[in-house]
Structures are given as C-alpha cells and as structure tokens.
C-alpha cells in the first residue's frame, strides 16, 4: 500500500511538469512576439528589454521554460497586462470563488444524481426509471449557459426572487454564510449542477443495476437478508466507481465554469479567463489555466487514492 501510494505520488510529478510545459507553451503559440504577450503595449523599450532578460526570452526555449518554472515555484505567475496586479493575487480570490461555486454545484448534482440513479435502478424498467434517464439525458445535453440565461429571466427578472449576478451584496470579499449571500449562489450553482446531475444519475443507475444483477446479491436475498443489508452491500460495491466519477466531475466543474461565470458575473476563474482572453492578457490566461490544471491533477490523485482505500482491488498502474 505504501509503495503504491508513493508510486502514484511520484507519477503525478511528471504529469504536473508536463502540464506546466503546456501552459508555458501557450505564450509561444499566441500569435506575435512572446514579449508582447507579457508587457503592456505602451511599455518603453527599456522596460521591454528588461522583461525580455528577466524572463529569459532571449535564451533557448528549454532554458526559458526552466526560468519560467522557477518563477512559478516561487509563486510568481507574472503580472496582469490589464491591471498590473500580480496574477497570483487575482487568482487567489478567483479560485476560492470558483471552488465555492463548484462545490455547491457538485453537492446539488451529486445528491440529485445519486437519488435519481438509485431510484431508476430500483424501479428498473418502470416509468420512474424512464423519467430519471430522460432527466439525466437532458442534463448532459442542455447548453447550460443558455439554461442560466433563461433562469435569470424567470427567477430574477420576472419573479424577482433571486439575484441575477454577482457574488453577494458586497462582492465576494465580504462573503458570509447567510441567506443574504447564499441566495447569490443559487442560480449559478443550479445551472452548473445539471451536467454532474445527469452524469451521476447515469453512472449510479448503471453501477447499481449491475450490482443488483450479480449473483451474490441474489444469494444474499436468498439467504433472507433484509433490505437494509442489501442496500449496504450495494453502497459498498458501488461507492468506489461512483466516487471516482464524482471526483472527476468536481474537477470538470472547476475548469468548466467559464460559461456560467460569464453569464452570472461570478468573480471566479472562469470570469477571469474570459476577461483575460479579450484583454489579450496572456499572463493571467496562463496562470489561471496552470492553477486549474494542477488542481485537477491533484484531485485525480486524491480520487485514485480514495478509491484504492475503499477497494484495494482497484489499482492503477
């Protein structure tokens, strides 16, 4: 077990490095001189030269990568072209906001998905099953940013029941866990939760159906085990794969909230990415993607380890 853990941890290192490499190359695939992607257009020539030296843009590409990585390891993701602020500072707040939104959406999606999936499996073949599956298919097929717009019109504009945009009456900096603030989370989190809801429903249904079909359940039932006992077995056997899916979904929510954040002006990483793209603010783009991807790598690792802990038979090589 210990060696497995160690091996997984060690394996995450080259992945993380490669992820950084991809992010590093973003600056170089952006059209134009990379230095233009790092310094403001109106910077004097002397400043441009200084930055070029500082970031080693006059050196060969591999050296540049190492230099850049050195900056990153020290927490220096560069400065935003648009605001001149440190990218790490902007990211710190944004990642927190996105995490909050993603967790809320994951909570809603996982609870609803597990409920629908279990119901569908328990009542396999009936209208309950069909309804749950239809709901799940709709969840993964709907363009969720569009759903968000419709929800704003209905709940904010027409019913005046929920805020249409923003993260709290005083902005995200003064967030508190009371209804005054939580109501701002409702619409974006609901919108974002439809995809994990659909995927978790389908996954839970599939897994539970498979387990219910297996011989040992039939045997258990034959032995006269009570309902509660069967449920416990099902949960125990379904949990690892369902957990794996949920973990990945959380990662996708973190990385995929750009559209929803744009629709709701939610000040998270997606909102940051969106403005960075149109401001051609490559350092912000690069830093945000790096942080989100690394988050995803860590999450994957955690899910793997959790899965192994729950069911030692599953071991990825």
């Amino acid at each position: 077990m210990f060696f497995y853990l160690l091996r997984r941890l060690l394996y995450a290192v080259p992945i993380a490095l490669s992820v950084s490499l991809v992010c590093f190359l973003l600056v170089h695939i952006a059209p134009g001189d990379p230095v233009n992607a790092i310094v403001p257009a109106d910077a004097p020539a002397a400043v441009v030269e200084q930055i070029r030296r500082e970031y080693g843009l006059d050196k060969p590409l591999p050296v540049q990568f190492v230099l850049w990585l050195w900056h990153v390891l020290q927490g220096d993701l560069g400065r935003s072209l648009a605001t001149g602020r440190s990218v790490s500072e902007d990211l710190y707040a944004a990642v927190g906001n996105t995490l909050m939104l993603a967790l809320a959406a994951a909570g809603i999606g996982f609870l609803a998905g597990t409920a629908f999936g279990t119901l569908a499996a328990a009542f396999r073949g009936t209208w309950v099953d069909k309804l749950a599956v239809a709901f799940a298919s709709a969840g993964v097929s709907v363009p969720h940013y569009w759903l968000g717009m419709v929800m704003v019109v209905v709940f904010s504009v027409m019913l005046n029941a929920l805020p249409a945009m923003g993260a709290g009456p005083g902005g995200s900096a003064s967030w508190a866990w009371d209804w005054q603030h939580i109501q701002f989370l409702v619409l974006p989190a609901l919108t974002l939760s439809v995809i994990p809801m659909g995927i978790v429903t389908r996954a839970v249904r599939g897994t539970v159906v498979e387990i219910l079909n297996q011989d040992f359940i039939t045997t258990l039932r034959g032995k006269g085990l009570r309902r509660g006992g069967v449920v416990r077995h099902v949960v125990k056997n379904a949990a690892p794969s369902v957990l794996a899916i949920m973990g990945l979904q959380l990662g996708y929510l973190m990385g995929g909230s750009i559209l929803v954040e744009t629709v709701f002006s939610w000040p998270g990483t997606g909102f940051l990415l969106n403005s960075a793209i149109f401001q051609r603010d490559i350092p912000v783009l690069q830093g945000t993607i790096l942080v989100l991807a690394l988050f995803f790598v860590v999450l994957n690792l955690a899910v793997d380890l959790l899965q192994t802990a729950l069911d030692p038979r599953i071991r990825r090589t």
Binding site: I15, A16, S18, V19, V22, C23, L26, V27, I29, A30, P31, G251, Y252, M254, G255, G256, I258, L259, L273, A276, I277, I282, L285, I289, L292, A293, F296, V297, N300
Partner: peptide, 16 residues
C-alpha cells in the same frame, strides 16, 4: 490532466 472546457478555452484563447 486538463478539464476539457479549460483545454478548449486555453487553446482558442491563446490562438485567438
């Protein structure tokens, strides 16, 4: 290791 939306946005964002 990249969530798909993020990868798509990253590449489109950098390339324009």
């Amino acid at each position: 290791a990249f969530p798909s939306v993020l990868l798509a946005v990253a590449i489109s964002g950098a390339l324009g």
